[in-house]
Each structure stands twice: as structure tokens, then as C-alpha cells.
Nucleic acid binder design. Structure first.
Lengths: 338, 338
DNA sequence: GTGAAAGCGCTAACAG
DNA sequence: CTGTTAGCGCTTTCAC
């Protein structure tokens, strides 16, 4: 069969298969799809003819007739990037298993492009649409009403009735802080991204609340950028204030790595003097960090998979609504090893 | 129009549009596609009807009739990853401009899955296929003969007749070395990935040749892993041999970053004592490196774009064959600033 | 158990 | 200038 497939140049149609097998197209169709009741011998003959010709059914024709294309659109509102990849992989995983193909559309933060792609996906009669984005913050629905179900992944829709799957970032922050508390740290600083950034705010709030629940408060909270440079700079600030912190929870692995470097250069041992937790569990960062970095994993692949599964359910008539927050996972490494 | 689009629930067909406009479907089709000659008033009436109903032509029906789907398949042989993203963005860019959609298939290094996806793409009657992969090394053709054109991007096909677009890694290595020579360095070491890795070998050979052309030879060449840890370790080796190198050309930005750290910790100034060039121009790495890292950019987006353009040409009957090596670009930064 | 015929939505060819 | 017809490739009644 593989040989047959490898050598198709002009693809065969079902009527050619039927002709070769000496049956009608209707019969060939039944034989190939295991429908109706046929003599076993006939069925076999058709199958052999199909193989011989390297027959592959035309999905367009099939979809036209079935009113279903077994295709879903995946539209990334901002560019395809580091966060989209695991989401796509997860979604692709769940969909591929269901024989569904993915049409990719990269809207690049451009609303015009987004509408254009939406239209394209609709014209291609996708069975459903997954909307993803780089930020977890809620966004306006991609359209008011659509003929196909839509699931938002990572990003969420501002319409609470829409189906969205997001990471539970507050949960992630709580896990980070509890972990630090569990290893006996009490003076915990938080260094994170820009205050206007949704994720930074959510994580900072959850961090403070978790500490408050223990009668503590953050040693400091520093908002800045999602960069290593900011991590280094913030550490400088932290150390210069003389605040004797024994742990830092960072809003991202990049920040954490900057912090790790600055601490090391200042002669503070990690985790001996200061324990360190990052956020994202980005392999490149956590592994290169010295020592290797304990981090919070948002399970992006799981979010992608869940979104795809919800979409498949919706396509099958069982639509879920509302927001689903997927819990995070703490991945302990040397930076908090006691 | 946007409003209309946002409110489609049951998509309209062209015959409904025709009915509303009081014309036949044939006329409606012409009006909507700007074909044939119609009275301006009629054309307008049809267009208004289409807008009113939020009509979007069914691509499957159109494709069925046209024998062309305006869709191409993009199959990543290994998993979607850091290298695939820019490739995809570039390809998507060139294709999107040509109104062509991308069907995504992630074969994950699994030949079975690959054949399965190939079959899916074929059944969907894609107009062409782009094959990408994480390694530049040649791979066996995805199939012997196919009814649609195929272009390999980044990865190349072992069949020289196939159309492949790859980075000219030797060119990249030459640029790196020449740059170091240009700023007066003579004792240049090369630290890179595993010797069995195609890219590592090609770059190392080009590095040695470029030096040889100047009557020099590499101070040392160290093969290892594509990691920061290896960069640090290799630097240790380098320093312990007492070889007084004044520059290091690294096989990747990650390695370079490890080298940078180890040099700094050993008290060597960059670029004062040792100049440093990386490979990949991976933003996260080059920017976080201290000092910021001069690197070689393989122009992955350009490769994706070129591959897509070649594919479009091939689809239009003008098929290119053979290997195309896209030159690299040196991006100078502080690590080689004189 | 099998064949014939209709039709999915659209476009193209040909009449009128 | 506009309508009618046929047909893209497939599945699905419904006869036989």
C-alpha cells in the first residue's frame, strides 16, 4: 500500500476503482467505508482495486456531501511563538487522534488579518475553531455568533458564556509560595513582569494572599520586565535595600535566571541563602540555570489538548461553556532543594 | 460586512443569495467572482444580497470543481519546535499573501505518522506540500512520486532532483570566522555540538578552511553538546590547556552563552581578551548574554518564505529542482565590538 | 447484494 | 446580459 501510495501521480477516483473492480460507484463506496451489506468477496475485490490504484478519497467531495470537513481552524491572535507551540502540539495531538486536521492561521496581532482569516476558515467550512494567544488576559470574542463552535485556549474570551481553557496562574503562584514556605522560608520576595500585564498582576496577588494566609507578607514585590536583565537589576535593588530575603519567587524563568546570576555574583548561595522559584518551566531556562531552577509548569500541552477535546465535544453537539482553569504543577529542582 | 459576518449562524449558499437577488445561481456566481459581463446594477444587487446573508463561498465545493484547493500541507518531520516556528511564519507569510491556507501536520519523528499524514494531505487534495525538519541533514524523500509538488525547507531531500531550500551553514561559519579575523583575532577556537551532527561537522569544516585560507588553523576544535553546560565545560578545557585564544566561534548561541559565562568567571574580558561569535541568532540567548552576542542568522523566515514561493511556482507549473542554499547573515553585537 | 439516480455547493459552457 | 445545464467526486436513498 505504501508502494502504491508512493507512486500516485494522477490520483484515482472512486469510479475508476469501481470500474476496475467491476462494480458500481455506489457499491465501491460501501465497500470502502464498510457500510451496507456486501458479499465479502465483492468488498475484497474493491479494496484490492483501490490499493492497486493508490486510491485516496477526495475529502472535499466527501465533506461537501457530509456537511462536515473533519478540519478545525487554529487561529493564533498574536504571532506563533513559544507559548503557542505546546498549545498547538497538545491540540494537534487530541485532534489528530480524532482524524481531524488543523488549518493554521497566524493573525499576528492584526485585527484585520484576524477577520480575514476567520472568513477563510469559515469558507473552508471548518468544523470548529480554536483561538489561542500569547497572553492569558481576556480578549473580545472573535465574533458574536458563528456557525461553528469556538474554544479559546490559553487566552480567554471576555464573554463568560464562551468556552475558554486557561492556566490557573493564581494556583501556580500559590504552589510556588507554599513550596517555599514548606522548605522553611519566610522572607519571600517577588520579582515579576510589568504591573500592567495581567499575568504579572494575578501571580503577584496570589503570592501576597498566600503569604497573608500564613500571617506573612511579601518582603518586596518588584514589577519590571520579563527579562533576565530585569532579574539581575531587581536583585541589585533587593540586595541594596538590605532586606534579608531567604527566597525569591519570580514571575518567569527568564527573570529567575537573571536573579540566580546576580545572587551568585553577590556571593549568595542558592538555595542555601536564597531559594528560587521560576514560572513557565521553560526547558532551556530551567536547565541552563545554575543551579537548575524549580519552576511552575502551566501544562500548556494539556491546555491545548483540553481545548481540542472540548471543541470535539462541541462539534458533536455537546458544547461546554464558560471558563476552565487548568491547575499548574510545581517542578522541583536544585534551586529549592533542601 | 463585519457585522454580517459576525452574525452568521446558518451559512447561506449561493442559491439563497441568487434567490434573494432574484437571479439565477450562475449569474450570482459571476457577479460574486467578477466574471462574465453583467449589468452593474445586477452585480450590485447580488453583492448586497450576499452581504446581507453573510455569504461565504464553500471552498470545498469550489475546490471540487476547480481541481485546486488553495491549500498546502506543511509537514514537520520531527516535532514542531524552535526552528520550525520561523520557518512556518515565513511560509505562512508567503502563502497567506497568495490566499493559500496551511494544513499543519506534525509527524514527530515517526515514519508511520508521517505516511499517515501524507495520506491525509493527499486526500485533502492539497495543492502542494512543504516538508520541514529540525536538522539540516538530508533525509529520504517523503515519497517517490506524488501528484503534487513538494518543497523541502531547512531539511533537504536526499534525492538531488527534489527541490530543497536550506541554510548555507558553511557560509555562516565563514562569515563568523572572517568577522573575527577582521577585528584582528588570530588564535580562534571552535566549540560546537556533537561530531556526528551534520551541522556541527559542516560548520567546523568551513571554520577550519576559512582559517586555512589565511594560513591559520583553529586553536582548538571541541565537539560536545548543544548546551550551555557544554560551553562552560569546554571553556574550562580550553583555559586549562593554556592555549591563549583571542576568539571563540561557537556552533550555537547556547554554547556561546556558556562560554561567555565561563570566561567571565575566569576573569577574561569579552571582547577585550576573547571575542565571541555564536550561531542561530536566537533572540533569547543573544540578548541575555553578557555582553550581547554577535551571532550568525540563518534567516529561517526567509527560508520558509522562499520554500513557499518555490512551491507556489511549482503549483503554477513552473517547478524548480535541486538544492538552494540561502546565505547567512552576521549580526554584530557587543561580544565582538572593537 | 448490487445498481441507478439524486444531490451536496459551486462554476463554466453554452443557449437564448 | 442572463438563465439553463452539466458535472467536479462522493455518499445515500431506493429500486431491483
Amino acid at each position: 500500500m505504501e508502494d502504491a501510495l508512493s507512486n500516485i501521480v494522477r490520483p484515482a477516483t472512486i469510479s475508476e476503482v469501481a470500474a476496475l473492480a467491476g462494480v458500481s460507484t455506489g457499491t465501491a463506496s460501501k465497500a470502502l467505508n464498510g457500510r451496507g451489506s456486501l458479499r465479502a468477496e465483492t468488498r475484497l475485490r474493491v479494496q484490492q482495486a483501490a490499493e492497486q490504484l493508490g486510491f485516496v478519497a477526495n475529502a472535499a467531495a466527501r465533506g461537501l456531501q457530509a456537511g462536515r470537513t473533519y478540519t478545525v481552524g487554529m487561529i493564533t491572535t498574536d504571532s506563533i511563538g513559544r507559548f503557542s507551540i505546546p498549545l498547538m502540539i497538545g491540540a494537534e495531538d487530541a485532534l489528530g487522534a480524532g482524524q481531524v486536521s488543523v488549518l493554521l492561521a497566524d493573525a499576528r496581532d492584526d485585527p484585520i488579518r484576524e477577520q480575514y482569516y476567520l472568513r477563510t476558515l469559515l469558507s473552508r467550512k471548518v468544523d470548529g475553531i480554536i483561538v489561542t494567544g500569547r497572553r492569558t488576559q481576556a480578549r473580545l470574542p472573535i465574533a458574536a455568533e458563528l456557525p461553528v463552535p469556538v474554544v479559546y485556549a490559553f487566552i480567554s474570551s471576555s464573554n463568560p458564556a464562551d468556552c475558554s481553557v486557561v492556566p490557573d496562574e493564581a494556583d501556580g503562584a500559590r504552589r510556588a509560595v507554599r513550596h517555599l514556605l514548606a522548605i522553611g522560608r519566610r522572607r519571600i520576595a517577588h520579582i515579576t513582569g510589568p504591573e500592567h500585564h495581567h499575568s504579572a498582576r494575578v501571580r503577584a496577588v496570589a503570592c501576597a494572599e498566600t503569604l497573608a494566609a500564613e500571617g506573612l507578607q511579601p518582603a518586596t514585590t518588584l514589577f519590571g520586565e520579563w527579562t533576565e536583565a530585569w532579574g539581575r537589576q531587581a536583585t541589585g535593588i533587593l540586595l541594596s535595600t538590605g532586606a534579608e530575603v531567604d527566597a525569591v519567587f519570580c514571575g518567569s524563568d527568564q527573570i529567575a535566571r537573571g536573579v540566580a546570576e546576580a545572587l551568585r555574583e553577590a556571593g549568595r548561595a542558592i538555595p542555601g541563602d536564597v531559594a528560587l522559584v521560576g514560572f513557565d518551566n521553560w526547558d532551556v531556562m530551567v536547565e541552563a540555570c545554575r543551579p537548575q531552577l524549580t519552576s511552575i509548569d502551566m501544562d500548556l500541552e494539556g491546555i491545548g489538548r483540553t481545548a481540542a477535546e472540548l471543541l470535539l465535544s462541541a462539534i458533536n453537539g455537546d458544547a461546554a461553556r464558560g471558563l476552565r482553569a487548568v491547575p499548574c504543577r510545581l517542578v522541583p529542582r536544585a534551586s529549592t532543594a533542601v
